[in-house]
């Protein structure tokens, strides 16, 4: 039986990755044992807490922490995506509209979204509405700007072709403009997803009674350092998972690009 060189290379890459992870964990373990600090628990304790406190108690974890956090994050993300893509197409298609609106967008984009939190607290209270609005606001500009850019840089010949075949306005929008701006839109979505995770946590650290961020804050207040670290591990996993899902969707939608 012969093994293809590609397979060998993949196996090598995987092996190396495992070794690096193992090395990091080993350094973590040795370092914490050497330091023997309350603030830096060993990985054994942290992962044991992830297992016992989060996974074995899944129904509570889901209900009190993961589900509220995900709901806020995804609501804000999808809300912003929808409005950013539709307005982005409108602005991208109209030079004049773009000229009027763009300076405002660039100004708003320059405000770090967390700075809006005090304002939103006053305006919208501490409910989920505030958190969703905060996430949506922070996530909106990158998607909008990328959509505008994508729509503007569409090849004029794509549109001429559509005209030559008398393609209706609505199909031109959904079947020509949108797919051709697709790669740029997805670039915006990827940036936005990381921003959404950040804003979700920030909003839960300031004003929440549930969510992953709240649980981390609670652990800190009760001086449960192991729980705090476990919360960070969960948060990292959650972010990586969401990114993975978005990448899968992107690969599926933009599969023609690899052709």
């Amino acid at each position: 039986m012969t093994i293809s060189p590609r397979l060998i290379r993949h196996a090598k890459d995987l092996g190396l990755q495992i070794i690096v992870v193992a090395a990091v964990l080993a350094v973590w373990k040795l370092g914490t044992e050497w330091a023997d600090s309350l603030y830096f628990p060993s990985p054994n304790k942290v992962f044991a807490e992830v297992w016992n406190g989060w996974i074995l108690d899944w129904s509570n974890t889901w209900e009190d922490n993961l589900q509220p956090s995900l709901m806020r994050l995804l609501s804000g993300f999808f809300l912003a995506s929808f409005f950013a893509i539709t307005t982005g197409i409108a602005i991208g298609r109209s030079r004049t509209l773009g000229d009027y609106v763009e300076p405002i967008i660039h100004f708003v984009r320059s405000i770090p979204p967390p700075a809006l939190l005090p304002l939103f607290l006053v305006l919208l209270g501490i409910d989920d509405t505030m958190k969703i609005v905060l996430i949506a606001t922070g996530v909106f500009p990158p998607i909008l700007l990328n959509t505008i850019d994508g729509v503007r840089s569409i090849d004029p010949l794509y549109l001429d072709t559509a005209t030559a075949y008398r393609i209706s306005r609505s199909r031109r929008l959904t079947h020509v403009i949108l797919p051709s701006a697709g790669p740029k839109i997805f670039a915006g979505l990827r940036i936005s997803l990381s921003i959404a995770v950040i804003l979700m946590v920030i909003s839960e650290l300031i004003a929440a009674t549930n969510g992953v961020g709240f649980r981390i804050l609670q652990a800190q207040r009760q001086f449960k350092m192991v729980d705090l670290w476990a919360g960070l591990v969960v948060l990292g996993t959650m972010g990586a998972f969401l990114n993975g899902v978005l990448s899968l969707v992107e690969r599926r939608v933009l599969r023609w690009r690899r052709a």
């Binding site: 090849d155 010949l157 001429d160 072709t161 797919p179 051709s180 023609w256 690009r257 052709a259």
Partner: peptide, 11 residues
């Protein structure tokens, strides 16, 4: 069109 690369829709 002359430029088939930009006239066919790659998606």
């Amino acid at each position: 069109f002359q430029d088939y690369r930009r006239s066919l829709y790659p998606w």
